[in-house]
Design a protein around this nucleic acid. Sequence first.
DNA 1: TAACTATACGGAGGCCGCCTCCGGTTTGCA
DNA 2: TGCAAACCGGAGGCGGCCTCCGTATAGTTA
Lengths: 204, 204
Amino acid sequence: MSTATESSTAATPLPVSKAKRADAQRNHDALLEAAAAAFTEHGPDASLEDVARRAGVGIGTLYRHFPTRDALVEAAYRRGLETLCDQADVLAHELPPAEALEAWMLAFVGYAATKRGLGAVLKLAANKAVLFAEVRARIRTAMDGLVTSAVASGAIRPDANAADLLGAVSGVCMISDQPDWQDQSRRLVRLLMDGLRYGAPTPS
Amino acid sequence: MSTATESSTAATPLPVSKAKRADAQRNHDALLEAAAAAFTEHGPDASLEDVARRAGVGIGTLYRHFPTRDALVEAAYRRGLETLCDQADVLAHELPPAEALEAWMLAFVGYAATKRGLGAVLKLAANKAVLFAEVRARIRTAMDGLVTSAVASGAIRPDANAADLLGAVSGVCMISDQPDWQDQSRRLVRLLMDGLRYGAPTPS
DNA sequence: TAACTATACGGAGGCCGCCTCCGGTTTGCA
DNA sequence: TGCAAACCGGAGGCGGCCTCCGTATAGTTA
């Protein structure tokens, strides 16, 4: 532990883990890619043996890199989820608070529509709090910011709650990964927003 | 040995499929009960072999009575779901339209909280439209009645839509079967209702 | 360049759940 | 009482989960 990257104590999101062997790194990446494809196609219940096959790797190798199914699931969804969270900041700068919140939720369910089983993943994340902790925190922070701003602006009711809203969005995601429910998902998000606007100090 | 073939038709919605043999009927009932218990405990992914064991029956018998997992799932949840639908009529007579709708949705998520995996079942029902058709229709009818009345009363916005709302309730059910999300589920239902009230002709 | 060792690979194997199939048993009727 | 239709139950083939350990290889040192 001499030259390790200790830049941020919070987490190490980007830096490739310490000096891995080249073949290991290669397999790691291949597995991640294969997993993303398999999960998108079959949801988070996809066969891990199939993932290993797609990656051109033995099942043993898969399990060494990702000791549990959940670990692989988390890794496979992490990048997309983080991108989504980053968007929250962008939207917050570009739009009025309430619209930013709505736009972000729409982006969220839109993403869910492309990633089959995102809803199930969120549910997993809600249960196994130990795993997923980082992603959870990330999402939570993003939502908190949006909700707080929107409340402060008076556009939505003051008792709005990021945790509840995350639950709602998760619920919508659970259905939005079905064939043609994208439009419905959008309508539901708008309905939720209207619920938030109901009884707000300065309704738009 | 009297031939009392219709002694127990009290609450059976469908005529007891033509004169089943006594042992078959017995096993059918035992399986249903065991399945309900197992699904409540482990969700709709419970092991069917375990269900058979609980029912004191061979796995072959289970599969003869319920040729697919879905068939068993549907049968196990049917009664509860039908009871819920019946409540819609009762509520419609006891409460003003909008409140009836809200009360019914609350009852729905309350039920989901006791039946782990009800959300997943609804998702199944949404996909495999062939199976579950009857239950689906039942739910759909119940919701349509409630929504239509509420719209007619002017308490909720005219573009309210039973299909969307069912999706929303399903989504809430998906999370409400988790340990302590019942309260959150209730808040979400209220939020949805407020969304419906937003922009209604005669807001209460 | 060659030898060496820590590290990584990969698949065999044990377990379990899914579902099918068929020989043996039971029921209800004549 | 006898018989055939209806029913029972579990063995067995398949595939997925995960572990374990002998083998192969990357990166280092002489």
